[in-house]
């Protein structure tokens, strides 16, 4: 593959979950991912930002091949994911590391760290125990764990949340991935260790020239840890741009609300109420017609936003937003 081609591409991607009552009666589909398009370049770090339930984890799991898309496709290094079988699929899973939200849930509780880090190497055919030990020690150093001998003999519950997440990251790195998908890697951790883990991921991404897809619901952390941002709402990407451009010139009313809800720390924050759009994200079983944000949008245009789905506009260079306000006919 040429260096210029994207590493991963999602085209018209849909992941719907069938909802059944009593196990057989079809009630409808939860449209967790509902028409998503993007391409990730080699070596870039992107953030997917959105509220819980907007489909971030479903998207991550679809990219990992853990859910089969209902429609559309994912290609990785030019190969379409759904065509990969057996060994080829194994190889794909080694090339895409997965760091999940809950590090404790991601680690087998009955294995000590040495054993749980040996496991993936054994599965992927590293037979020589000394070679495995060597690689394990190298990645533990890379994730900045000190007192390695002590850590290797511990079980997951004996480690702090930050240490557990470092082990999860180490495990993902062992197989020399080209990409890492980190699904809210710090949301279960204390504020004081979040920055440390995010810095670690960012440095590893730069040093190894990995592609990093970093999922979060917290816009305040993305500036330093991503090159580009995708904002998701109700199963869709509603806005995308390079990180500074998006944070400094948000275009979509949803992104604007998210940014208005967070303020940099200041004693005056306690004195004023924040502007928060009313209501809650829509049901993905029955999303509203038109723009999915229109029932909560302070700028919704009656007769347009509640009727027609907004196409993608480019209100600024390299900055895309799916919102009718950018349509010239509405004179934004």
């Amino acid at each position: 593959m040429t260096a210029g081609s994207p590493l991963l591409q999602a085209s018209n991607l849909h992941t719907w979950f069938e909802l059944r009552q009593w196990g057989f009666l079809r009630v409808g589909s939860v449209r967790a991912v509902d028409g998503v398009n993007f391409a990730l370049a080699r070596g870039e770090s992107v953030a997917f930002v959105g509220e819980s339930g907007c489909g971030k984890s479903s998207l991550a799991r679809t990219l990992l091949g853990l859910h089969r898309p209902t429609r559309g496709e994912v290609t990785f290094d030019g190969e379409e994911l759904s065509t990969l079988k057996g060994k080829a699929r194994q190889r794909y899973l080694a090339r895409v590391g997965y760091v999940q939200q809950d590090p404790f849930g991601a680690l087998p509780p009955f294995m000590d760290v040495r054993r749980l880090l040996n496991e993936p190497l054994i599965i992927h055919g590293v037979r020589d125990p000394a070679a495995r030990e060597e690689r394990i020690r190298r990645v533990l150093e890379e994730v900045r764990l000190t007192r390695v001998d002590e850590i290797l003999s511990k079980f997951p519950h004996m480690l702090s949340g930050g240490q557990q997440q470092r082990i999860v990251i180490a495990r993902a790195l062992l197989l020399e991935p080209a990409m890492i998908i980190a699904d809210e890697p710090v949301s279960m951790l204390d504020a004081s260790v979040r920055v440390e883990i995010l810095n670690l991921l960012r440095n590893i991404q730069r040093e190894r020239e990995l592609t990093l897809a970093f999922i979060t619901h917290d816009l305040s952390t993305v500036r330093h840890f991503a090159d580009r941002i995708f904002v998701m709402y109700a199963g869709r990407i509603v806005e995308q741009a390079p990180v500074d451009e998006l944070l400094d010139h948000p275009q979509h009313p949803y992104t604007q609300s998210l940014l208005a809800a967070i303020a940099d720390v200041d004693a005056d924050n306690a004195l004023e109420e924040r502007d928060v759009p009313g209501g809650e994200p829509p049901s993905l079983l029955n999303p509203p017609p038109g723009c999915r944000f229109h029932p909560r949008c302070p700028k919704a245009i009656a007769g347009t936003c509640d009727v027609r789905e907004p196409p993608r506009f480019a209100p600024r260079e390299g900055h895309y937003s799916d919102c009718w306000l950018h349509d010239e006919r509405h004179g934004s």
Partner: peptide, 8 residues
């Protein structure tokens, strides 16, 4: 909770 819910 999410950012918007937290703010509310």
């Amino acid at each position: 909770l999410d950012v918007l819910t937290q703010a509310a």
